[in-house]
Each structure stands twice: as C-alpha cells, then as structure tokens.
Amino acid sequence: MVSATDAFLAHRNLLFTVAYEMLGSAVDAEDVLQETWLRWVGVDLDAVQDHRAYLFRITTRQALDRLRTLRRRREYYVGPWLPEPLLTAPDVAEDVELADSVSMAMLLVLEILTPTERAVFVLREVFDLGYDEIAAAVDKSPAAVRQIAHRARGHVAARRPRGAVSPGQARDALVAFQRAIETGDLRHLLDILAPDVVFLTDGGGIVRAAVTPVVGADTVARLLAAGSGRIADRLSLRPVQVNGHPALILRRDGEIDTVVAVRVDDGLVTGLYAVRNPEKLSRVDREIALSR
C-alpha cells in the first residue's frame, strides 16, 4: 500500500506547477503545497480511489483561496507586478506546451482572468483534466465549468503570443538583445525591438524601477542604450532558461540584481520583463522542477 508521504512526493512537482501557474509566485505555491500536505495526511487513503485527482482538488482549492487574497494585495503593489521568475531545467523548454504555460508572457495574460477562470483554464488547457474532475476541484457543476473554460479560452486567445516561436528563434533574439545591450548599439536595438514593444520593470517598491510601462521601440531602445554603459562597468550578463524560455540574469558584484525575460513574436522582441524585486529573486540560483 502506498503511504501518504510516497503519494504526495510522487506528485509534488506536478502540484507545485499547478499552484505556481495559478499564483505566479513560487513562495505562495510552496505555502499552498504545505497546506495541501497538512490536509492530505488527514485523509483516509483507503477511501481515495485516485490519489492524483484528490491531490489536484486539495491544491486547487488552497490555491484559489490564496489567489483571491493575493489579488487584493496586488491592487496596492508599487509599479508593475511581474511573476516570480524560476530557473528551469532544459526538459521544461523541450515540453513546448508546458514552457508556453509557465512563460512570463502567459502568466501575465492569465492575470486578466478571475480566480475561478484561471483555475479552470490551467487545469483544462495545461493539465488536460476532465470537466468532472475540475468541477469537483472548483466546486462548480460540469456544465458551469464548460462555460467558464470557453470564456477563459476566449480571453486568453485574444492576448496570448501572436505566433509560435521556436526555441532557436527565441535564443537568437536573446543573443542579439544581449549583444545590443552590452555594446549600447542603438541601431541594433531598434532592429530587434517590435514597434509596440512593452518594457515592464518590477521593483516592488523596494529597489529602483520604472513605476509605469515603457512603450515603443524608440523609447525602450534609448532607455536601454543609456544604461548599457553602467551594465558594462558594473554588471555581468548571463543567458539562462527562465520559466522554460531564454532569459538573462544580471549580477552586480556576483549577486543577482535583475532577471530579464523576453517575449518574441515573429522574430522581434515584443515584451521585456525585468524583475528586480529582491523578494522574487531567491529561486533563480537553483533549478526548479516543473511537470504536467
């Protein structure tokens, strides 16, 4: 007979991924897993036919409660809020659907959904759960879940990345972006930035960051070019895999200062996401296992 501990550990990475996709925060996802474990050890396993489905249900309910609280807190967040970046292993990037679902761009798209819509979308579109299973997790009827899923898909489809980008294209765009930043070549920056590029920086009110989005290739390029001298003198840039996609880690005197993720559409950088809030940088010094 499988013990409660063995069953939980067998699905832990999966449950973490569910919670993280719902919350956009690894810290809160870990708290959700702790709550899930505390409830799981009190369950009579003899009465549970499907351990995975039951754990999904507990995790989803805990994440929903946490998400509703976080939404209220984020109303008072200083400047743009960005998801907590995760350093991910190569196998995440190889799973195209998983990488897409945890990308910084997609997690920001999911922010437009209500908590219930987000839970339904994640469970259905990412983890392919049946409507009956999702209904049990979100305390809705299967018919209601179908309607919620349809509505959520429509909201996401209108805002998700415009075209599929291969890992090679994303890497090429990141290499070009890194070279342009290191050299301060304004012309090269303009060549790789989409006309409507959006640059978001998240300092959380703790460190210096723009409190409003910077929009437009010319404005973004000039801002980055102006800072390239400081980067060359005081910071080092290293390409990594963050949330299943190419990104850059900027270190100041060996300490992580900023994580920059990029969104690429049709070979051009359409989104730049710079996370500077030190409270969100504790998990980019080690790989995090994600699964679906």
Score class of each variant (00 low, 15 high):
Arg72Ser: 14
Val165Glu: 12
Asp202Phe: 10
Arg12Val: 08
Glu133Met: 11
Pro90Met: 11
Asp191Gln: 03
Glu111Ser: 14
Thr212Gly: 08
Gly79Gln: 03
Thr69Asn: 04
Pro142Asn: 03
Glu287Asp: 07
Val48Thr: 07
Arg187Met: 06
Pro161Leu: 12
Asn13Pro: 09
Ala19Leu: 01
Thr114Ala: 14
Ala99Tyr: 13
Tyr273Gly: 00
Arg179His: 12
Leu107Phe: 06
Arg292Asp: 00
Leu108Thr: 11
Ala170Tyr: 05
Ala99Trp: 13
Thr17Pro: 01
Ala143Asn: 06
Arg276Asp: 03
Ala180Leu: 03
Arg73Glu: 12
Leu268Asn: 10
Asp266Gln: 13
Leu129Phe: 05
Glu182Asp: 04
Ala135Tyr: 07
Val259Asp: 06
Ala29Glu: 00
Thr183Lys: 05
Val27Gly: 10
Gly205Tyr: 14
Ala225Pro: 02
Ala143Thr: 10
Asp44Trp: 00
Phe127Tyr: 08
Pro239Thr: 15
Leu237Glu: 06
Glu279Arg: 14
Leu190His: 04
Leu174Glu: 08
Val48Gly: 00
Pro80Gln: 11
Asp218His: 11
Gly163Pro: 02
Thr219Gln: 13
Leu224Gly: 06
Ile249Pro: 00
Ala29Tyr: 03
Glu94Phe: 11
Ile206Ala: 07
Glu75Ser: 09
Ser236Lys: 12
Glu35Leu: 00
Asn13Tyr: 05
Glu182Cys: 03
Gly203Lys: 01
Gly168Ser: 06
Ala4Asn: 09
Tyr20Cys: 09
Arg74Ile: 07
Ala119Arg: 02
Ile58His: 01
Asp285Pro: 03
Asp95Gln: 02
Glu133Pro: 06
Gly254Gln: 03
Val211Leu: 13
Val214Gln: 06
Arg72Ile: 12
Arg162Gly: 15
Arg12Tyr: 03
Glu117Met: 14
Val240Ser: 01
Ala144Tyr: 00
Thr212Ile: 15
Arg234Val: 08
Gln34Cys: 00
His245Asp: 00
Ala105Phe: 10
Arg222Val: 12
Asp233Asn: 14
Val198Ala: 14
Asp95Pro: 04
Asn13Arg: 11
